[in-house]
Design a protein around this nucleic acid. Structure first.
Length: 332
RNA sequence: GGGUCGGUGGUAGAGCGGUCAAUUACAACAGACUGUAAAUCUGUCGCCUCCGGGCUACGAAGGUUCGAAUCCUUCCCGGCCCA
């Protein structure tokens, strides 16, 4: 019986939340934010029925607040409430800078709840303080403090906290192949957590999987199961099948994916330049290293000569750089 | 405002006149192996190179010196203490 309100944090995004960070987060420009926010609604649509939700940007109300209003809100909190937050305290103890601006963040998120008269707010456990800030502020506006619902955080592909700046996230909008591959790269210990928190697999089945792995079953199989489950959820079963095949083909059998980018080239062109141009390497030096380390293949054969150029007889060749960069080179 | 300590590569953090493109760890990348884009092991990890070397970098700008990330001056930024 609740109305879902999805708030896009366009205003708060500029300020930046430090809840999950152990260092100060820089203020972002409005352009960057606009870029980051582009897909938010689409992403949310993967989880909730967005057609039934009200969508708001919090600049709608936060942008209108006056200094005196903010002062009144700030009065509802004491400094020590902020400084005793674990990550803030840690930074303080380490002699790192904590800006005043960061302390304002929870106020803003709290005011979101006031603005929409929330009765329940959802967030990750890292959001506890921010969620509670809503409860703090609402009575100031004669509202009943909202309830809060927190979900456990799940870790990223490298076992650390998911963070876009660490590149260890699995995104809702990832392509089936990417999503599948990323799930396959999570540490084995995370399999069960993912099954519990990210899928609708019944708990007794999850326990079965857990027991099997304890009994020495190959975790790979459980991981494939998990990966297919997730791809099915956010794409569809067909895509999951395809992604599994792709993974088998490319990584297990070191084959060539079915769909790869094409590039027209001229005979005589050096492989090293093509690698840089396709952005498979960030610089010529890096491309050279890749070749020297045996990470480059042309038609399944390792390229050993740094100066290897395309031959006129090679009117079509498959270039493989590293584990997952492929291109079809065409010489007209 | 005063005092004091500090600002180093993606991050943390050594170096404190030459042997420094800069120890090390993490991250990243490649190879081997494998059960996987896990783990482990090995290698790489500023840019360019005719592979001799060249160029740009240690907050910024000047200066001292044959030579500076390292010393001096000024400025900018941060921590802490005092006001």
């Amino acid at each position: 019986g609740h109305q879902i309100v999805f708030i896009v944090g366009d205003f708060t995004g500029v300020i930046g939340d430090t809840s999950d960070k152990d260092s100060e987060r820089p203020m972002l420009s409005e352009e960057t934010i606009a870029e980051n926010m582009k897909n938010y609604v689409e992403q949310a649509g993967k989880i909730i029925d967005i057609t039934k939700a009200e969508v708001h940007s919090n600049s709608e109300w936060l942008g209108k607040l006056t200094y005196s209003e903010i002062g009144r809100q700030a009065d509802a909190f004491s400094l020590s409430e902020f400084t005793s937050r674990e990550n803030i305290k840690k930074r303080l103890d380490e002699g790192k800078r904590v800006s005043l601006r960061e302390l304002l963040y929870p106020l803003m998120q709290g005011y979101d709840s006031v603005a929409i008269q929330a009765d329940v707010e959802l967030g990750g456990t890292d959001q506890r303080f921010n969620l509670l800030a809503g409860r703090h502020l609402q009575p100031l506006y004669d509202q009943k403090p909202q309830d809060i619902l927190m979900g456990n955080l799940i870790l990223g592909t490298d076992g650390r906290k998911m963070s876009s700046s660490w590149g260890n996230t699995i995104n809702l909008l990832d392509s089936p192949n990417d999503m599948f591959g990323k799930v396959m790269s999570i540490p084995d210990e995370l399999i069960v957590t993912y099954l519990v928190h990210c899928t609708r697999v019944p708990m007794e089945d999850v326990e079965k999987v857990e027991q099997e792995m304890k009994g020495g079953a190959n975790p790979k199989n459980s991981k494939v199961f998990l990966a297919k489950m997730l791809v099915s959820m956010y794409h569809d079963e067909g895509a999951a099948e395809e992604a599994e095949k792709h993974f088998q083909n490319v990584f297990s059998e070191k084959g060539v994916p079915e769909e790869i980018i094409e590039r027209r080239s001229m005979a005589g062109e050096e492989i090293i330049d093509i690698i840089v141009e396709l952005e498979f390497a960030g610089s010529k030096g890096e491309a050279r290293r890749l070749i020297e380390q045996g990470g480059v293949e042309l038609n399944q054969e390792k390229v050993t000569d740094v100066k290897r150029a395309l031959l006129p007889t090679e009117n079509e060749a498959i270039l493989k750089v590293g584990k997952r960069n492929f291109a079809r080179i065409l010489i007209p």
